[in-house]
């Protein structure tokens, strides 16, 4: 790296003459070594998935969960330094609790992303701290129902002043990705960590912007994408961790939860199958010949 020895990378918050902040770039490097994390914004919810690299056989299977819940309906998955991810989640939970204490309602996912973006960015400004070594994917479902404030006791007038507005639409699935610089965007599909390039390529094929993909499909695609992203580091063992948050009518009733074991295992089975050397498909091609168009 050309920056080494120039001295502009020794302190946080210092620009190099060509306008770069090296400490932030190094933080991004830390993220790039982490297990792949992805998020998919579906029609009726959000799926988060993580390639959790197993560095020791002494770790209990399916324990040590890495995807965290914030408030009730937001999930956070991160790639990079684990303790930094934990601190990120801790702060996100504080922000959510503080929002509730002021507004008596859950924090919208967009506001949480905004506050966390601001928080992460602050760690690029001072020489006494270092930037976050994580890129975090924040996915949540903002309630589509007309919510009362916390502790509300009645339902209010049904019509007239203070009454309900007919057919008002609000809420839905939201997905954000926050980088070590504090930069954040809203995404249809987000990927970070070691296998992000492969994962992004796969995500793009899903045409998520059309808003057609269902949550259950999203779960299966997420599992497959994590397995695809893992292809380059096949020698390492990993566990697939997956969570989702659906609409109020959906399977999680607006809460962020783990994907049920049965569904996750089914998704993993399909994912593994899609990666197998395709003998059958070879045969199928001979027979049908038009399968490639898919």
């Amino acid at each position: 790296m050309t920056s080494i020895g120039t001295g502009y990378d020794l302190s946080n918050s210092v620009f190099s003459p060509d306008g770069r902040n090296f400490q932030v770039e190094y933080a991004v490097k830390a993220v790039e070594n982490g297990g792949t994390a992805i998020g998919i914004r579906c029609k009726d919810g959000v799926v988060l998935a993580l390639e959790k690299l197993i560095h020791s056989r002494l770790l209990k299977k399916d324990a040590n969960k890495r995807i965290a819940t914030v408030d009730r309906k937001v999930g956070v998955v991160s790639a990079g330094l684990l303790p930094d991810g934990r601190h990120f989640v801790s702060r996100a939970r504080d922000e959510a609790a503080q929002w509730r204490s002021i507004y008596k309602s859950p924090i919208p996912t967009s506001s949480l992303a905004d506050r966390m973006g601001g928080y992460v960015q602050a760690y690029t400004l001072y020489s006494s701290v270092r930037p976050f070594g994580v890129t975090a994917i924040v996915g949540g479902w903002d309630s589509e129902a007309e919510l009362g404030v916390d502790g509300q006791v009645g339902s209010g007038p049904k019509v007239g002043a203070g009454g309900k507005r007919e057919g008002a639409k609000s809420g839905g699935p939201y997905l954000y990705m926050i980088e070590p610089s504090g930069l954040y965007w809203g995404y249809y599909g987000a990927a970070t960590g070691k296998g992000r390039q492969a994962a992004k390529a796969e995500l793009e094929k899903l045409n998520l912007a059309d808003g057609e993909i269902s949550l259950e499909q999203g779960v299966k695609e997420a599992a497959r994408i994590i397995y695809v992203a893992h292809e380059d580091s096949k020698d390492k063992e990993f566990e697939l961790e997956m969570t989702w948050v659906s609409s109020l009518e959906g399977p999680t009733k607006g809460h962020h939860q783990e994907v049920p074991k049965a569904l996750r295992e089914e998704a993993e089975r399909l994912a593994k199958k899609s990666l197998e050397p395709e003998d059958e498909e070879e045969e199928a091609r001979v027979e049908g010949g038009d399968r490639m168009e898919e």
Binding site: D62, K65, A68, R93, R100, D150, E258, P260, K261
Partner: peptide, 24 residues
């Protein structure tokens, strides 16, 4: 006061959920 307690309990419930993410 009931509303205050209700909010207190929902805060408690959210915090409880944070520390019980073990298997279903």
């Amino acid at each position: 006061d009931m509303q205050h307690l209700d909010r207190l309990l929902s805060t408690l419930s959210i915090r409880e959920d944070y520390s019980s993410t073990a298997s279903e």
